[in-house]
Nucleic acid binder design. Structure first.
Length: 587
DNA sequence: TGCGGCTATTG
DNA sequence: CACAATAGCCGCAG
């Protein structure tokens, strides 16, 4: 068969495939690929280079919204060198609208066809790939048909052990297209989740961004990183014996203050507690914030706290961490997920979301590049104003410092107002913030009622829906046979979870839409989003276009807000700066 | 060997 | 020490 990209692009274009229209793709390295759009479908045998060339031509000339089953499929395309612009990710949309984490193809299919979820063939895993054969699959039916005689999708299709052929790839793409079309039509018109179609697109495209951040990595200078670790955890040990010796000598500094002959394992919280009791300090636990005020009580406390710091640096963020995650090319790499199991925030491994501030000076832009760092200001109360439709809180959002405005309305100090607002969103019931809660309730009844309603529903075990249409399942949070006291506390915890999840989840949706908008607008300038941190974006940009990227980051936020909260009543703002290293203040 | 608890870091 | 996350080590059950 011919594999002339121009011909293929032309035939797809003639069939109506264009910017934003759904085009399912199934590709198998070494075999070939298939695409399926509305009224256009074909499959080709192709080597990897030809496949990448052809798909890239389709992307360049037609810019469709590529339908894939999951992030692993789009990652495989990226690894072939195909950078997709927009995406419809069946697993991401399934997680959004159905809830829960499991989103393997047979499960998505079963939901699409209204099959009993309890009869879905078990793939043996619940994540991105399906690569296990099941006995039932092998024993029955036509191996070229993705659908089993019982109506379920074959769980051995599409995985790594799958015997791909152009015919099967075409069938796989056709099934994906069918589901995507159903998801689009179904979600676009549902009145109780008007944002779902919009959010489904950005949540899908975030999967592409996750692929790219995982592949590209975060620029990090290994010399600087090593020197920071060295200053906090000591020089790099030559071997296991030397590492042991360093550990022992580090322990000895603390144990020198212990009673003579006492032998305690500092890595065991229980033994640390016993050690402290021996020197006359009784504490319910040994957390740093609790020991901090007791430094004057006994000379062992200060070295113990310092030991904790150094121990953490040498375990979690030490040489082993650098060796495992920092590549020779000066890139820190980890895995990224577009939505976590709770409210839908992004998560990252390799310490990119909890890197100690001391390590951040090692995150340095390449020569000739600059970072554009931008973070949303006071995003949670602004999100609360938008999703609850509270006109008074929306009014407060029009000033730069929302908390100061709330403080003035309540007639309290700014700090009190801040902890009160945050406390309302977290479900805090004690402390200074709680005292201001009654005033907050009087001043902003719409917002507070909204939070109370989420709390109440969650306590009752009812699912929640975020502003963007993400279903938050509460059925996995039921508890049985707990003592009354524990049950009450668990119910209260569920309420706090629900109260916060509708805010945190909606903020995540806004942030992710911003992130993919920046990704899209910055591409032509050669700039990449290299880090997403809940309300903060780090973009790696060529120096000459740094200012241009900074401007487009701000413009992307305005554009995102116009689509996400079109009535314009709530103001969102970003603090955007050009910096050379992550730790730099704005300049 | 798997898992809950404790601890520390981040937003 | 609220809400969320990742991650390492210890202690304990199986």
């Amino acid at each position: 068969m011919d594999l002339v990209p121009d011909t293929i692009v032309e035939s797809l274009g003639t069939a109506g495939v264009g910017r934003g229209s759904l085009l399912a793709v199934a590709a198998s390295p070494g075999v070939g690929f298939a695409v399926a759009g509305d009224g256009a479908a074909f499959a080709r045998v192709a080597d990897d280079d030809a496949m990448a060339f052809c798909l890239t031509a389709i992307e360049r000339d037609l810019a469709p919204r590529w339908v894939v089953w999951n992030g692993a499929e789009s990652r495989a395309l990226l690894d072939l060198g195909v950078r997709l612009g927009a995406c419809w990710n069946l697993a991401a949309v399934h997680r959004l609208t159905v809830g829960g984490w499991k989103a393997d193809p047979p499960r998505i299919w079963a939901h699409h066809r209204g099959l009993d979820p309890s009869t879905v063939p078990d793939t043996g895993r619940d994540d991105h790939t399906v690569d296990l054969f099941t006995a039932a699959d092998r024993a029955t039916g036509d191996l070229d048909d993705p659908v089993r005689p019982d109506g379920h999708l074959r769980s051995d299709w599409g995985g790594r052990l799958w015997d791909a052929t152009p015919t099967r790839l075409a069938a796989w793409a056709a099934v994906a297209l069918e589901i995507a079309q159903a998801q689009t039509i179904e979600r676009a018109g549902v009145a109780d989740r008007p944002k779902a179609a919009l959010i489904a697109r950005s949540e899908s495209t975030v999967e592409l961004l996750c692929n790219e951040m995982a592949a590209n990595g975060l620029p990090m200078d290994s010399v600087v990183a090593e020197s920071i670790v060295g200053s906090l955890a000591g020089p790099r040990p030559a071997g296991e014996a030397e590492a042991d010796e360093i550990r022992r000598s580090r322990d000895a500094v603390v144990l020198a203050h212990a009673p003579v002959g006492a032998d305690f394992d500092l890595r065991s919280p229980g033994q640390v507690k016993s050690l402290l009791r021996r020197v006359g300090i009784e504490v319910p636990d040994t957390r740093a914030w609790r020991l901090e005020p007791l430094v004057g009580r006994h000379p062992i406390v200060k070295p113990l706290l310092e030991w904790r710091k150094a121990e953490r640096m040498s375990t979690t963020f030490g040489y082993a961490w650098l060796d495992e995650h920092l590549g020779d090319d000066g890139r820190l790499r980890g895995s990224w997920t577009s939505c976590d199991g709770a409210a839908g925030r992004m998560t990252a491994s390799a310490g990119m979301h909890n890197m100690p501030a001391e390590m951040r000076p090692a995150v340095i832009a390449d020569d000739g590049y600059v970072f554009v760092r931008a973070d949303l200001g006071q995003v949670e109360p602004r999100v609360l104003a938008a999703v609850s439709g509270d006109p008074k809180l929306a009014k407060a959002s029009t000033v730069d410092d929302l908390y100061a405005e709330v403080a003035e309305t309540l007639g309290v100090e700014r700090e009190i107002a801040k902890v009160a607002v945050l406390g309302a969103m977290y479900g805090q019931t004690t402390g200074r913030g709680a005292q201001a809660l009654a005033e907050l309730r009087k001043a902003y009844p719409v917002s507070m009622d909204f939070l109370d309603e989420a709390d109440r529903r969650a306590r009752g075990g009812h699912d929640l829906m975020t502003y963007g249409g993400r279903r938050l399942r509460m059925d996995n949070r039921t508890d049985f046979d707990l003592p009354e006291q524990a049950a009450r506390s668990r119910t209260a915890a569920r309420g706090r979870y629900g109260r916060n999840a509708v805010i945190q989840g909606a903020a995540a949706e806004l942030f992710k839409m911003w992130a993919v908008t920046v990704r899209s607008r910055a591409e032509d300038l050669g700039a990449d989003v290299v880090l997403c941190l809940h309300d903060e974006l780090l973009v790696h940009a060529p120096m000459p276009v740094g200012q241009e990227v900074a401007t487009l980051v701000d413009a992307a936020l305005d554009e995102t807000v116009r689509r996400w909260a079109p009535d314009g009543s709530v103001r969102f703002l970003a603090d955007t700066a050009l910096i050379g290293r992550w730790s730099d203040a704005k300049d």
